[in-house]
Design a protein around this nucleic acid. Structure first.
Lengths: 143, 143
DNA sequence: CTCCGTGCAAAGATTTTGCAGGAAC
DNA sequence: GTTCCTGCAAAATCTTTGCACGGAG
């Protein structure tokens, strides 16, 4: 899952640069982890020491835009996750702070018993979309 | 829902100060809104102009600790919500940015059709608790 | 050759922390 | 009288932005 970062970028129609490949590789190489921008910067700099922090933020924003990544907000710094098509959600450990994928689909994911090994103490759900005032059918608003 | 802020604080066993009452009143008065720390500061200063920003952060953290409030992480500043016992979740409008309570219980809340008026485009779920490595049964770890 | 991504550095936004004085209990 | 909350200010953290240069297409 390493050499094709070049191809992934090309297919997405975004400009390919050494920085972007290093950043993408850092994320792909992170495996199950969900690194923050800073962690991605540190990892990517192992291959490209002159990589700048600003570029990491710019690039991550673009990767989210094209759909490579999704963000996970969990208090503190934003974490980035590969945007796999499979329906998965996240589990945050209150002790070590790590973030895990939990491979459960919508309906069942809320039942603590269905995430074996993990002790679920709380479920946070944020739905995103358009509120009644901002439905396109009404009439255009901000943004 | 205004005069009993004093009593609420006493019952919680926390020290009662004019600042804390102003902050609690600002939150209780916000109704369905989910204000950020800054918005709470501005509102509370209408009654107590000398209120400092640091006190607001300290107090909000304490209110979360005692269970008055819960946080809602939604990109950008943390929003605060009354910690009602009813099982409710949140809806964030991508157009106007407002945060709404959606009164749906676990299982059904993920179905867009069950939040009438709101166009759900994405569902974010973060479970919180202890991961397998940090289960108390294993043996104590950090924190 | 043109566009836009990059590095650098500065600014912005949000939150935390240290400390001395004073109010709550 | 003690405790700990408060205000102020500085610092820490995370992220965005402006600008000139250089590499990608």
């Amino acid at each position: 899952v390493n050499g094709d970062s070049l191809e992934l970028l090309r297919d997405a129609g975004v400009r390919v640069t050494p920085q972007r490949r290093a950043i993408l590789d850092a994320i792909l190489g992170a495996g199950a982890a969900h690194p923050s921008a800073d962690e991605i910067l540190r990892e990517a700099r192992r291959r490209l020491p002159e990589l700048s922090r600003g570029t990491v933020y710019n690039t991550l924003a673009e990767f989210v835009r094209v759909g490579f990544l999704q963000t996970v907000e969990t208090g503190g710094a934003v974490r980035y996750d590969r945007n796999l098509d499979e329906d998965h959600q996240h589990f945050r450990c209150r002790s070590c702070g790590r973030l895990f994928d939990v491979e459960v689909v919508g309906q069942e994911s809320l039942d603590p018993r269905l995430t074996p090994g993990f002790a679920v103490e709380r479920t946070r759900i944020v739905l995103e979309g358009r509120c009644p005032d901002c439905r396109p059918s009404d009439h255009e608003r901000k943004e």
